[in-house]
């Protein structure tokens, strides 16, 4: 089975977000970049599926060369090869177009990615890729098994979980507990250096959306402390001051 895993290169979850250039750019000073945590679940599951039944795992990233350490990390975790589309990821549709274009040139059975990126939280690339390819697209997927040409999966729905069956090929947006995050071992890290990483040019259109300005939320006021011996006061405050009860 040939699996394509699409990964984002995003600030680590502990990053304190600030902006520069009159609030038009993320301040990247001191920011640690990682594979998107949801994408890493997708990658882990892809590797498990390959190890169980053969095939290959290719990682794909749309972005500039700064993301290469993140791509190498995905190779160290266990992907076989990588493709980087050399372009700024302008918006979800632009990224989806690149993924669909690569998918049309290669016969993948499965395209996995995270349910959303943790920078822009769009959650829409999976569906756009599915629509562009005419493939079914499912998200957020919490469990995924492949049996021959058929996928069975569990998807989170409002108020529970839905189990679905669908013929491959398939696009899936993944989240836990689809697999456990994997820590690359020494051999993985060594071999990642020489695994193929192809750089290709982008295709397609202008972005439908552009960011005019970034903003930060207003600072939180101070916390009002209530004595543990006087819990009734907390209820009074919530009712009469905060008016949320």
């Amino acid at each position: 089975m040939k699996i394509l895993v699409c990964i984002t290169h995003v600030p680590d979850t502990t990053t304190k977000i600030t902006f520069t250039d009159q609030n038009t750019k993320l301040n990247t000073a001191g920011v640690q970049y990682v594979i998107g945590p949801y994408d890493e679940y997708a990658l882990s599951r892809a590797i498990e599926l390959r190890d169980a039944s053969g095939g290959s795992v290719t990682v794909l990233h749309v972005g500039d060369a700064e993301a290469e350490p993140t791509i190498r990390k995905a190779l160290a975790i266990g992907a076989d090869d990588a493709i980087r589309v050399n372009a700024e990821a302008k918006d979800a549709f632009f990224v989806a177009e690149q993924i669909a274009h690569i998918a049309k040139q290669n016969q993948y059975d499965l395209i996995l990615m995270g349910r959303e990126s943790i920078d822009f939280n769009g959650g829409q690339v999976h569906g756009m890729v599915g629509e562009l390819l005419g493939w079914p697209a499912v998200s957020p997927v919490m469990k995924l098994d492949i049996n021959g040409g058929t996928a069975t999966l569990a998807k989170e729905i409002e108020g529970g979980k839905e189990y679905l069956e669908v013929a491959l090929p398939l696009v899936a947006g993944c989240q836990e507990p689809i697999a456990e995050w994997r820590i690359p071992n020494m051999r993985g890290i060594m071999s990642a250096r020489t695994k193929p990483l192809a750089v290709v040019d982008p295709v397609g259109s202008d972005a439908g959306t552009t960011v005019a300005e970034y903003q930060l939320p207003p600072a939180k006021g101070s916390c009002k402390m209530v004595d543990a011996a006087n819990i009734k006061e907390l209820v009074d405050l919530l009712k009469n001051e905060a008016k949320v009860l």
Binding site: F93, G123, I157
Partner: peptide, 23 residues
Amino acid sequence: KSALTDSASSKVAVKLKAGVVNN
């Protein structure tokens, strides 16, 4: 915004050639 509309909106956006903004 919901898990359903994350997926549905992405397909709608492609069908209508529309820019889509979440959250």
